[in-house]
């Protein structure tokens, strides 16, 4: 009988511990939350919030930059400079690049440098979500006037349903996605880039198909299973993106890049709706290598 009691207690213990385990690594912002917690009021106001997330402040990015910005006195991930501050020396580049600066290897010569960003996933300003919408034979320039914030893609509280890579929301805000795409996390956190293996393509632990599906929650029409005619008026043919070898992040970074498009062709690529590019250097489209060097990373023998 005593054995049964011990077994019941053991099972009860497992049941109690399981939810804790599920969220333990489910985001770095798990504060001291308990039935009488004081932690919520650190960032939120129940009735006097200044944003739709009831945040105490009006600028979500400024709030995030308080820890994740330049100086980064509350985190090692400095997304403003695109630097991992927890490393020796002057910092290693974050995989996502950065919003103001990015430590990258845009020359693809194994020598990463910090440079001003030339294109970023704009935050706090209205922008266009290119390729947003279903495949259509009618031209659709994307979803306009979308204001991205850090919380559009990341959930600082963690993700329900399992550990998520970079606490990415399974359904990004304003994505209009019908289904959730959970990008599983890896218990071994790798925040920085390996500059010895084609830089940003080295996401060995990340399921490429999965991350591409996540990107396609917003950029719907970029997800392509093959190179056949999709029947889409704009995105008629494209790289296969729903496999592990040609995931979105093989060529693009998520936050911002310092790559420069100063070539005659690369600097003149129009936007998906046919509008002309802004200027050569600002036309990098979040690509990780100068000009169209990303092509050469895979197609090494043109």
């Amino acid at each position: 009988m005593r054995r049964w009691h011990m077994l019941i207690f053991l099972l009860l213990g497992v049941v109690l511990v399981l939810p804790t385990t599920a969220v333990a690594d489910n985001g770095p912002h798990q504060g001291d939350f308990n039935p009488t917690t004081d932690a919520c009021a650190g960032c939120h106001r129940a009735h006097r919030g200044q944003t739709d997330s009831l945040l105490v402040e009006s600028s979500q990015s400024a709030l995030c930059y308080s820890c994740h910005g330049t100086g980064a006195s509350g985190a090692d991930t400095n997304v403003q400079d695109g630097v991992w501050e927890g490393a020796q020396g002057t910092g290693q580049g974050l995989r996502g690049g950065g919003f103001d600066f990015a430590v990258m290897d845009p020359e693809a010569d194994g020598n990463p440098v910090s440079g001003s960003t030339t294109s970023v996933h704009d935050i706090e300003v209205a922008g266009t979500v290119w390729g947003h919408g279903s495949v259509s034979s009618t031209a659709n320039p994307g979803k306009a006037d979308v204001v991205l914030q850090c919380g559009s893609c990341h959930n600082p509280h963690g993700i329900t349903g399992g550990d998520a890579y970079r606490i990415l929301r399974p359904k990004p805000k304003d994505s209009d996605a019908a289904q959730e795409v959970l990008v599983p996390d890896d218990q071994t956190k790798i925040y920085t880039i390996s500059y010895t293996n084609n830089n940003y393509r080295d996401h060995t632990y990340l399921d490429g198909k999965n991350i591409s599906q996540w990107c396609a929650q917003c950029h719907t029409r970029y997800l392509a299973g093959d190179t056949q005619d999709t029947g889409d008026a704009i995105f008629k043919h494209g790289h296969v993106t729903d496999d592990n070898s040609r995931k979105c992040m093989a060529c693009h970074v998520a936050h911002g890049t310092s790559a420069v498009m100063d070539g005659a062709y690369s600097s003149a690529v129009e936007w998906p709706d046919g509008s002309p590019p802004q200027s050569g250097t600002q036309n990098s489209r979040l690509l990780s290598v100068n000009n169209r060097g990303v092509c050469y990373q895979c197609h090494e023998s043109p």
Binding site: G71, D81, T90, V113, S114
Partner: peptide, 11 residues
């Protein structure tokens, strides 16, 4: 605190 902007972040 350092020669280039990328190398310095005084706090």
């Amino acid at each position: 605190t350092a020669e280039t902007l990328a190398e310095r972040t005084p706090v």
